[in-house]
């Protein structure tokens, strides 16, 4: 069976499962956009009629609309699923399938993101009709670059989440580690503020580690805040390096963890 057909079946399945939980998904979506909405409200108040670190009210509005969309497109809940799969033995029947469980997880992500991100996109388009501040110039080149960055970020966040979830082979607090990571990324990934507003030392740490690549870089691309070729290449380069890093980490955690899991079951 070809990979396209496998994935078509997996995505279709995930889409239909999500359909049953569509009301729940709307609530998760609402919860997901609250944080950037409140951050926007606060920065809006701080900016007043002036600018903060080069950001005026309208810039904040575009930035946080970008955060809502791109966070939804790149977020991965897999550590929570894996934690449950491993602790409750739901991994067993998945291992018995002739397909690596990661493919099911990837398909779930694609179906979920297609559903939720398109809701945000529609809301954004409606908002842009009424509120000029959040309109973006639709330059095809910029959108294409953003799309690439989003795919890289989504891939990386998937591997981070999957790897953290695999820690459940060793500890019962794998999701707590993910929460910790989420807490740090609140600042370093640019969820609470554009990185330009952080103390410069913190912002550079965010750029060297994987955090900026997770969210802030694609958002900056979308809102037109990456100027020049060098920052562009640097941003994509960092994304690629950390994507590979987390993919390898995931692979290592998977093989080692599985060996351990087998030992427990046998």
């Amino acid at each position: 069976m070809s990979w396209t057909r496998r994935y078509a079946a997996l995505i279709r399945n995930a889409w239909l499962v999500d359909l049953q939980y569509r009301a729940s998904i709307v609530l998760w979506l609402l919860w997901g956009v609250t944080e950037p909405a409140i951050a926007l409200g606060i920065w809006w108040a701080i900016a007043g009629s002036g600018t903060v670190g080069g950001y005026a009210r309208a810039d904040f509005a575009r930035y946080f609309f970008g955060v809502m969309l791109i966070n939804q497109l790149t977020i991965a809940w897999d550590s929570w699923y894996l934690d449950r799969w491993i602790r409750e033995g739901e991994l067993n029947f998945r291992l018995a399938r002739p397909l690596h469980p990661a493919h099911e997880a990837v398909a779930d992500n694609i179906a979920y993101k297609a559903r939720t991100a398109s809701v945000i996109l529609i809301v954004w388009l409606v908002a842009a009709l009424l509120w000029p501040a959040v309109r973006l110039p639709a330059t095809p080149g910029r959108l294409a670059l953003t799309a690439v960055a989003v795919v890289l970020a989504a891939g990386m966040r998937f591997f981070i989440s999957f790897t953290t979830g695999l820690l459940a082979f060793w500890t019962t607090r794998a999701t707590a580690i993910m929460e910790l990571h989420a807490g740090v990324s609140l600042f370093l990934a640019g969820r609470i503020a554009p990185l330009a507003l952080l103390p410069p030392a913190v912002a550079s740490v965010a750029g060297v580690l994987w955090f900026r690549s997770m969210l802030a870089f694609p958002v900056d691309l979308l809102t037109g805040n990456v100027h020049g070729v060098e920052p562009l290449l640097q941003g994509f380069g960092t994304q690629l390096v950390w994507l590979v890093f987390w993919a390898v980490a995931c692979r290592v955690a998977w093989t080692r963890g599985l060996r351990r899991y087998g030992a427990v079951g046998g």
């Binding site: 939980y21 009301a23 609530l27």
Partner: peptide, 18 residues
């Protein structure tokens, strides 16, 4: 069928931080 209705509260309560 909405099992996570408590999430609605969490979203609202976020507003109470400020």
């Amino acid at each position: 069928s909405v099992e996570n209705i408590a999430v609605l509260f969490d979203a609202l309560f976020e507003g109470a931080r400020y």
